[in-house]
């Protein structure tokens, strides 16, 4: 049986890579009887949503545009067809 520590690592890894069926099975079995790890699974999803929202609100404006200067500089550096 997997420990909470192992399951927490697998739950974290599953956000980045698909687990093998054996790993998924081990995690699902563990979650059946472990409330703490079930909460962790939900909370990892929350962290993802929260950090995306944090960056969207704190990050550079969604309407940022290349300045005319930058545009000219880049155009001059490009080959002409």
């Amino acid at each position: 049986m997997l420990s909470c520590k192992e399951v927490s690592l697998l739950l974290s890894r599953s956000r980045d890579q698909r687990l093998t069926w054996r790993e998924r099975l081990g995690v699902r079995l563990h979650l059946l009887y472990c409330e703490g790890c079930r909460r962790l699974e939900k909370q990892l999803r929350f962290l993802h949503a929260a950090v995306r929202r944090f960056v969207a609100s704190a990050g550079p404006a969604a309407d940022a545009r290349l300045s005319e200067d930058a545009r000219r500089r880049i155009r001059d550096a490009l080959p002409r067809d």
């Binding site: 420990s3 909470c4 520590k5 192992e6 409330e35 703490g36 790890c37 909460r39 962790l40 939900k42 909370q43 929350f46």
Partner: peptide, 13 residues
Amino acid sequence: GHWVRTPAAWSRP
């Protein structure tokens, strides 16, 4: 490898 402190239920995240 068990949780020392079980993660809490987060109310209305």
